[in-house]
């Protein structure tokens, strides 16, 4: 072997070693666009994120397509909303992808609902006569900023387990994400003074007012903006706004759907209209993919305002991140007209 050949060979070896040192980004596939947005923020440069169901599609009625199988085949991590939301299509994709890494129970399969705060968990016997009911509770939990925070933590933890060498980066991304969320939720001044954890803790213990008072800084962000509509009545199309409503003190009086997953009927709408008049409901809230007809009719009868907002990232062109989902909602609710 002559010298130049040996040189070239060793240069090639060094080149390969360099390639090896820069690990391939983790391939992450999420079931929804919201999870994808959070995962992107946490994984940063160490992950490539794809999602199955976009915000303008109804996750209850999705058909498994060959392109989903392609995504799942190479995935290192699969993240789902859970609580039976994807029960009609997730098993087909996971089964078809032949990727043992992301089977349920494997480290590459993450159920994002693991530690979230759940609502509408049925107590007592349940039956399908109650409509499309989810035995684990209402799965639309990403509409509570607290749950977004919890999901980000859950994802960061799993990413660190899968790729320990990047743990510090995941933690930094998580801290950055939580800081931004907390500032948007409570306002930067308060977060700078007390820290997000303290504020959330106070909110859960219903001692937020005391905490704010002791700080001397004023409440900002979504909490401050939504204070103007606190306690107001709300009617929603589908039962998917509970988390948002409860977090910001709105009261969901009724749904336009007589039962989850069953389209509005004239008889049911008449009852809802009656209730809205009696109890003074101010808002009707629905996703853009539902027909506005029923809501507009009710608004005409009762004087309530129809708000059409995306409940997921990509549900309307303006909503490109989980933060924008809340920004848009808050803007709609607090718009003066």
């Amino acid at each position: 072997m002559n010298i130049p050949m040996a040189l070239r060979l060793s240069a090639f070896v060094v080149f390969c070693l360099n390639l090896g040192a820069r690990a391939e980004p983790l391939r992450i596939v999420t079931t929804t666009s919201d999870l994808a947005d959070i995962a992107k923020r946490i994984a940063g440069e160490h992950g490539v994120v794809q999602f199955v169901c976009n915000g303008n599609e109804d996750p209850h009625f999705l058909t498994a397509r060959p392109s989903y199988t392609l995504m799942a085949r190479k995935a290192d991590l699969w993240i789902r909303i859970g609580m039976e939301l994807e029960v009609g299509w997730e098993p087909v994709i996971l089964d078809g992808a032949r990727n043992p890494r992301i089977h349920v129970g494997q480290p590459g399969h993450l159920d994002a609902s693991l530690r979230v705060h759940k609502l509408d968990v049925p107590h007592g016997p349940i039956s399908r006569a109650m409509g499309d009911i989810h035995p684990s509770g209402n799965p639309h939990y990403w509409l509570d900023p607290w749950n977004v925070r919890v999901v980000a933590e859950t994802i960061a933890e799993r990413l660190a387990a899968l790729r320990p060498s990047n743990e510090a980066d995941f933690r930094r991304n998580l801290d950055c994400f939580k800081r931004e969320l907390d500032e948007r939720m409570f306002g930067p001044a308060l977060v700078a003074d007390l820290g997000g954890d303290v504020l959330w803790d106070a909110l859960h213990k219903e001692t937020l007012d005391t905490a704010i008072h002791s700080s001397g800084k004023s409440l900002g962000g979504w909490m401050a903006a939504m204070a103007s509509v606190r306690g107001r009545g709300l009617v929603t199309y589908h039962k998917n706004w509970e988390y948002f409503a409860r977090r910001f003190g709105l009261v969901v009086m009724a749904e336009l759907e007589p039962k989850p997953g069953i389209p509005p009927t004239a008889a049911h709408l008449a009852t809802v209209a009656e209730r809205m008049k009696q109890e003074g409901v101010s808002f009707i809230l629905q996703d853009p993919f539902y027909s506005r007809k029923a809501a507009d009719r009710l608004a005409g009868q009762t004087g309530a305002r129809v708000l059409v907002a995306a409940s997921s990232v990509g549900g309307s062109p303006a909503v490109g991140s989980v933060f924008q989902v809340f920004e848009e909602l808050v803007a709609l609710f607090t718009r003066k007209n």
């Binding site: 859970g82 043992p100 890494r101 349920v104 129970g105 494997q106 480290p107 399969h109 159920d111 609902s113 693991l114 759940k118 968990v121 049925p122 107590h123 007592g124 684990s136």
Partner: peptide
Amino acid sequence: MRPNGIAQPTGAMGGP
């Protein structure tokens, strides 16, 4: 067939 042996939490079994 090599199943991965790492134990995983398999979702909350909470509720009454």
